[in-house]
Each structure stands twice: as structure tokens, then as C-alpha cells.
């Protein structure tokens, strides 16, 4: 039975009776079997994404950009182009315009605000540069799409309220449903049913 042992050389020369008995009755192997048997009936840790469950990231997560409004519902972005200048990959395009209707917080808003996600590396520098805290990297991370065009997101879309509210703490797995559109595939979370396996 010596060959069975994986012990180092010191031990294998003097095989004690106890070790021998252990090998003859397969004690180690049986212990191993019991360990795996116990695991068979423990709760699984599989996250059933995208069918049933989805991970909601923490607030600090850097996902798809969002443009925000203040409490009165006015656009915070003043079209200062600082985000465009600070972006290392130059993927933001801002064209400002004058606006006296009071849509924004000042008399200047962004006429066009576009982000090219194909170039963005989600570094968050644009977020830091923004003086009015209009720009935030949100928690949306399902960015795959069927066409390249979809990867350029503009202000009209980014300024809409986010599916996951800003106050939501995150860091949980929630119940979700898979939705297949013709442009992209989204997993819609249902924040009321949460689950933690840890």
C-alpha cells in the first residue's frame, strides 16, 4: 500500500499501524465522500442571470453615464464642455446652446450631448470634472446591442429617470426578467425581491 501514499519520504519509510489501517479502510476517501455529500445539500450560490436574477451594483459603480436634474426638475448640465475636455479618450461630444426658457439651471444648456460607448473606458474622469454634478456614471451595465449605432447614446436617453433609483443601496441580487427587444437585450430588475446567498 506504500505506493498509495503521497506522504514525503520521511514518513513513507516508516508507515505506522494507524496510517496503514487508515488506508486499508479508505478512511480518507470516505471522509472526502462525506464532504462532497454535505455540499450536495447546501444552498447553491449560482446567480441565475439573466433568466431570474440580476446583480445590482453598489452606488460607487461606474456604468452607463446619466445626466441628472435638480430637485425642481431642471437640467443640471450647463454645457460647459469640461467633461469633453477631461475625457482621455475623447468620446464625449458637447454642443452648448443658449436657452432662456428655464429648462436648465442657467441660461445655457447642452444642445447635443453624446457619448460614444465604444471608446469610453468608464474611468469616471468626466464625472469628476463636471462642476454642476450633472454627469454621473450610473448602474446600467447591459450595454451589448445588435448595432454599432446603439453604442452612441445621446442626452435624450441619458436624462431620463434611471430604472434603479439613486437612493437604492445596491450590492444585492434581485429577481429579474429577461426582455428581448429588437435593438438590445435587457434584464429588468424587480427591486422588491432581494436575495443574498452570503
Amino acid at each position: 500500500m506504500n505506493e498509495l501514499s503521497t506522504d514525503n519520504h520521511k514518513n513513507s519509510s516508516s508507515l505506522s499501524i494507524k496510517d496503514l489501517l487508515k488506508k486499508v479502510f479508505f478512511i480518507d476517501l470516505i471522509q472526502g465522500l462525506f464532504i462532497t455529500f454535505n455540499y450536495t445539500f447546501t444552498k447553491t450560490i449560482t446567480e441565475r442571470y439573466p433568466d431570474d436574477e440580476k446583480w445590482i451594483p453598489y452606488k460607487r459603480f461606474r456604468g452607463l453615464h446619466t445626466l441628472n436634474r435638480n430637485k425642481e426638475g431642471k437640467e443640471l448640465c450647463v454645457g460647459c464642455e469640461l467633461c469633453q475636455k477631461s475625457c482621455p479618450t475623447q468620446c464625449i461630444t458637447v454642443i452648448p446652446m443658449e436657452d432662456k426658457t428655464g429648462k436648465g439651471i442657467a441660461d445655457r444648456i447642452a444642445y447635443r450631448w453624446e457619448i460614444n460607448l465604444l471608446r469610453c473606458m468608464f474611468c469616471g474622469l468626466c464625472e469628476d470634472a463636471c462642476p454642476t454634478e450633472a454627469l454621473k456614471l450610473g448602474r446600467e451595465y447591459e450595454l451589448a446591442s445588435f448595432s454599432m449605432q446603439r453604442q452612441i447614446r445621446s442626452k435624450e436617453e441619458l436624462i431620463k429617470p434611471q430604472p434603479i433609483p439613486v437612493e437604492f443601496e445596491g450590492g444585492v441580487i434581485v429577481r429579474a426578467t429577461l426582455e428581448k427587444g429588437d435593438k438590445e437585450i435587457k434584464v429588468k430588475p424587480d427591486l422588491s425581491v432581494q436575495k443574498r446567498w452570503w
Binding site: T40, T44, I45, T46
Partner: peptide, 14 residues
């Protein structure tokens, strides 16, 4: 399935 549950996974589900 046995493999999945021994490894604390679910195995085929879809």
C-alpha cells in the same frame, strides 16, 4: 446535476 450540486452550483437550468 450531481456535479453541479456537489460544486454548490445548480447544473443545467435553462
Amino acid at each position: 446535476k450531481v456535479a453541479g450540486h456537489i460544486q454548490v452550483r445548480l447544473g443545467p437550468m435553462r
